[in-house]
Design a protein around this nucleic acid. Structure first.
Lengths: 66, 66
DNA sequence: TTTCCATGTAAAGCCTCCTTCACATTCGAA
DNA sequence: TTCGAATGTGAAGGAGGCTTTACATGGAAA
């Protein structure tokens, strides 16, 4: 599943490490999500959306809308 | 994570089996999500939201707003 | 050059999602 | 009562999310 995480993070000038701490996950998890190696769990997707102040659908691209 | 899946399903008069087929998952998965035994994956959450024509946030309750 | 920061990725392990098969309960219809 | 549909749950197994540890690369700064 594609997403806009890298863009949103860059807009705020955060490193993957910074973002990982804000989300309380490992830096590798942030990296894996940004590079599309796997999708976050639903609870983590909620934390990401809340951190960036938008809807999950604004960050993650539905597979059906490839 | 709490959710409104059972209500939405009941509003449409669907059984768990009906919903499972529409979502292309097992009946047990639908049941487990409704009873809160586990959260759906993010791709499945997208399919659920699209099926009911609303946002993920309208169906699943963020843990932080418990 | 050397150092440091940011990023990418691999391996091993644990936990969760999702499956199938199976069984139990409840309830309404025949 | 008997039957079938709907629901809840358990066990076992495969796939994937997330962790820690570790190593490699590239670029900016000293």
């Amino acid at each position: 599943m594609n997403n806009h995480l890298r863009t949103l993070r860059a807009e705020r000038g955060w490193s993957q490490q910074d973002l990982a701490q804000l989300l309380e996950v490992s830096r590798q998890s942030v990296n894996a999500i940004e590079t599309g190696r796997y999708d976050p769990s639903l609870p983590l997707a909620f934390r990401i959306a809340e951190l960036f102040g938008c809807a999950i659908e604004d960050i993650f691209i539905s597979p059906s809308k490839g």
